[in-house]
Design a protein around this nucleic acid. Structure first.
Ligand SMILES: [Mn+2]
Ligand SMILES: [Mn+2]
Ligand SMILES: [Zn+2]
Ligand SMILES: [Zn+2]
Lengths: 155, 155
DNA sequence: TACAAATTTAGAATTATTATTATTTAAAAA
DNA sequence: TTTTTAAATAATAATAATTCTAAATTTGTA
C-alpha cells in the first residue's frame, strides 16, 4: 500500500479515503467492472461514497493511463484496471469477458496502402466465441436473450 | 433494388417504405453511422420517419446479421452495414474510423490454456493510431479534447 | 377485399453519464 | 501546529442515448 500511495502522490493525484478504497479495489484486479460494479464494492467499505466520485476517479485514472476502457459493451462502459496490454475473449452467448495475455503485434501488419496514411500505435483484439459453460448448456439457457443487448458477465 | 427486396422478403422481413429507405442508405455503405446519422439521412427522403423506426430496423438487421455493431465508441452505438468481415483503424486524436480488409485469423491462435475452455468463433481487431490529417497538425488541433470522450468522425 | 400480424409513430420512460455547486478536505506553506 | 488554498466530495439536477408503450396504420396473404 505504501507504494500505491507514493506512486499516486508523485503524479499529483490527491489521495482521499474514497480514492484509496477505489485504488485498493482495482489493484491487481483482472475483471472488467462498470462504474456501478465499482460503486457497489466501494460502498461496502465506504458507505457514504457517491457515484460521482467513482466516475470522477475513474476518469482521472483513465486520463493518466492507469486504467483503460474496454469497448465491448454498448450499454455501459467497462473499465480494465489491469495495467499490462492484453486482449480479450468474449462469450457470444453469455457475454462473459476474459483476458488474453499474448502479444500478436508482429503478425498484425497493416496493408501498405493503409500504412501510407495511418501510423499505428497499438492494437487490440476481441476474440468472440463460446465459453465452457455455454458449450455445456448448448446455448439453450441464454439462447433466447438478445445477443447484442445481453448484459456482460465476467469470467 | 429488386434483389434487395427479394432478399429481405425471403427472410420474412416485412418491407415498408421506411425500411427500404434505410436499406438503400446502408447498401454498400462503408461508413460507421450511429442511429442518429441514419435518422438524419433518412429524413431527407422520408421526412416523417421516426427515430424509433430507425432503432427498430437497426435492431432487426443486427438480429439477422445483416448489420454489425462496431464497439469503439462508448458514447453512442455505431453500426457497420458492410457485410464482409473486416477490422478497423481508429485515430486516437480525432476518432475517425476506417476499414481494414485483411484476414489475420491464421496468426491469431489463442493460448492452449484458453482453448481448453473457450471455443473461438470469430475475431475483430482495432488498430489505434494517428491518421494522416492528425499527423500533419501534430495533434495540436485536437490535442486538448479528452481522447476517450471525443466524438467519432469517419474516414 | 378482408384479415391477422407486424410495423410505425409520438411521446413517455429509462438509464448511463455528466454537470453544478455548496461543503469538506488533503497537502503545502507559514 | 495552524493556516491556506486548490482540489475533491456528495447530493442533486441535467443531459442524452436508447427503449418502451399503445394507438393507428400498413404489409403480405388468403
Ligand atoms: Mn482485461
Ligand atoms: Mn467497417
Ligand atoms: Zn458463455
Ligand atoms: Zn485523426
Amino acid at each position: 500500500m505504501k507504494e500505491l500511495i507514493e506512486k499516486y502522490r508523485e503524479i499529483g493525484f490527491k489521495l482521499t479515503p474514497q480514492r484509496l478504497a477505489i485504488l485498493r479495489f482495482l489493484k491487481g484486479n483482472t475483471s472488467h467492472p462498470t462504474a456501478e460494479n465499482i460503486y457497489r464494492q466501494i460502498k461496502e467499505v465506504y458507505p457514504t461514497v457517491s457515484f460521482a466520485t467513482v466516475y470522477n476517479t475513474l476518469q482521472a485514472l483513465v486520463d493518466r493511463g492507469e486504467v483503460t476502457e474496454v469497448t465491448i459493451d454498448s450499454q455501459k462502459r467497462h473499465f480494465d484496471p489491469y495495467p499490462k496490454p492484453h486482449h480479450h475473449i468474449i462469450c457470444i452467448e453469455c457475454n462473459k469477458i476474459g483476458d488474453v495475455f499474448k502479444d500478436y503485434s508482429d503478425a498484425l501488419k497493416l496493408p501498405k496502402n493503409i500504412l501510407k496514411e495511418f501510423k499505428p500505435v497499438r492494437n487490440h483484439i476481441n476474440f468472440y466465441g463460446i465459453c465452457r459453460e455455454c458449450q455445456k448448456i448448448g446455448g439453450i439457457k441464454y439462447g433466447n436473450m438478445s445477443k447484442s443487448r445481453a448484459g456482460c458477465r465476467e469470467f
